[in-house]
Design a protein around this nucleic acid. Structure first.
Lengths: 331, 331
DNA sequence: ACCAATTTTGCAACCGGTTGCAAACGGTCG
DNA sequence: CGACCGTTTGCAACCGGTTGCAAAATTGGT
């Protein structure tokens, strides 16, 4: 059904190579043949088969976009930015939903079958070994929202979660809170581990302040709410640094249901600054993670690695900043 | 770099066809050769190139998933279900983000270049002509969340929006409201048009009830909030049927900010029942759209059409029901 | 052990493109 | 007009598979 190179060649009265050349950037074709070919192609409605050409060129312009975060609303923003960014560069996202899969083997096999040019692993809950397995399979890979390392084995783009933990701690200290706490995401997530670490390190400099730590089972509203409900059964802290925004919103809902006021009775600071944090009925004080920059850099890096396969793995971290809204009392 | 059929054949001491056959379902290979081939393949880490095989078989197992809804949180649920559902059937989603594009031509060209087996257009804001253009290009297509027609030109899977409008109207009537209103999404969206129509038709049977209609500029929190703020400047209705949940949440926030109580002062009923509607700090009364069924049927239908290209276009609608929560007073 | 029926196998052509190479072409200059 | 040089062109091989067909191997029956 779809029209092929050969048919265009016949109609234009030229060889197949001529047609191929008019459709490849920087190939040698005279203006006359090009015109003939373009006319024939237009009349026939021809567009070259990207997959067939990938056979010889070795490039598909397909990028595997692997994620397991299909429940945290911020990932809709992430997918929006990734798909647009990839499209803008002429690349196509092949989406892989990991849901509860932890073994990269299947995804690797599948993405190799489709000869993707590169892979982006977008997750803060997958272990570093996950992205590394792609690299071991010879695929250019970038781990977005991954953990910072001084000697990375794969490209990592994201934020300095330890520094964010510190930043959150300083924000709470600056407000004079004496009993603070970290309400983390799933303990296995490197993002939570690092945020916790930074938070505790900074607070270690203030021995007069009491710190406690607990974890929600997932980065989700329900998990955040459940954990805060549990905490409210005994004496809660004065202010919480929550593992991320969706957790914060869950915690807020538990606090409000308990008849307590935010930020008077309990303060909350989140992390991400997803669109919803700006919603006026939520109005969450949070640490802003510069999504667009992270995603832009991730794409740049995967493209650079495709072009230069031996490229040395690098880490790109973007600075975050506190966005003051209504869930933490003024300094 | 990746290992090919030929290398496996050489190592196993068989022909290339033999290798090909051991990897194709239902081909004739003796147990002995199969064993030899599988051993060689395992040792070499071979997995067949899906794109190369697609050249001769004409099937890529790639499905174009086209959407323009990257800002409505329910679409994260939609993408989750679509990607999982497709993966479960051995299909791969090639995601296309339309953002503000309205012309299908580019998407069609691109999806044909990648020889997708079929296309799913997931949007309630794109006109019917959008999906139809794919069909005209010879691509099997299903329009999910599209408009119901008695004589569809493409497959449509979704809900009966007119019936939903009626259902919302009945819910408000049953509660004894005398001044009700529809706060729709973008006027161009067929979903909004149909919901409005059903709502008005049902209310026409109750001449004693005052009805008014306005529209938000998008299915988004901000648009819903802005429109409700505008409405609150004069005398608002007693209860609103909002175009969808995210609009409802925006409206709720405006109402609360104005110091009014829901459902006492103003009632709200939404549509979709997205995960967030269940969040206890939102607790939205809404009309539940059975997402999983809609998406399952969409995939079934696109698969069926791939297998039987001449298949008659059909419409599959799923029933919705009111989910009672806290934003509408009890009957 | 022989023969026919059945299964398995390899050859070779093909899917829709790309590309190195050498021949054909077009233009310039003496 | 012919030699020379740089472009443009087509041929043919190749990318990594699949598949129709006929030959080879196996099976079963006698």
């Amino acid at each position: 059904m779809p029209v092929t190179l050969k048919e265009v060649a016949e109609r234009a009265g030229v060889s197949r190579s001529a047609v191929s050349r008019t459709f490849t950037e920087g190939a040698s074709v005279s203006a006359r043949t090009r015109a003939k070919v373009e006319k024939a192609a237009r009349e026939l409605g021809y567009s070259p088969n990207a997959l067939a050409s990938s056979l010889t060129t070795g490039r598909t312009k397909l990028i595997g976009l692997v994620s397991n975060n299909f429940h945290n609303p911020i990932f809709l923003e992430v997918f929006d930015l990734f798909t647009r960014g990839l499209q803008d560069r002429g690349l196509r996202p092949l989406l892989v939903n990991l849901s509860d899969e932890v073994d990269p083997a299947n995804s690797i096999r599948m993405l190799r079958q489709y000869s993707v040019d590169g892979v982006i692993v977008a997750s803060s809950t997958l272990p570093p070994s996950f992205a590394e397995a792609f690299r071991d399979a010879g695929l250019p890979v970038v781990h977005s929202f991954g953990r910072y390392t001084t000697s990375p084995y794969v490209h990592v783009v994201g934020i300095d979660n330890i520094a964010c933990g510190r930043m959150a701690a300083r924000a709470l200290v600056a407000r004079g809170h004496r009993r603070v706490a970290f309400l983390g995401g799933p303990p296995g997530a490197t993002s939570t581990q690092d945020r916790e670490r930074g938070f505790l390190e900074e607070l270690a400099r203030h021995p007069e302040i009491t710190v406690s730590v607990t974890h929600a089972s997932a980065y989700s509203f329900d998990a955040g709410r459940a954990e805060m409900q549990r905490l409210l059964q005994t004496t809660p802290a004065e202010a919480y640094f929550c593992g991320d925004d969706v957790l914060s919103i869950g915690a807020l809902s538990a606090i409000q249901d308990a008849g307590l006021c935010v930020p008077q009775d309990i303060g909350i600071i989140g992390l991400n600054d997803m669109a919803m944090a700006r919603w006026q009925n939520i109005d969450l004080t949070t640490i802003r993670q510069p999504l667009a920059e992270i995603i832009g850099a991730s794409i740049d890096l995967v493209v650079a690695t495709i072009e230069e396969p031996g490229r040395y793995p690098e880490t790109r971290l973007f600075p975050c900043r506190v966005v003051e809204r209504g869930t933490l009392r003024p300094v």
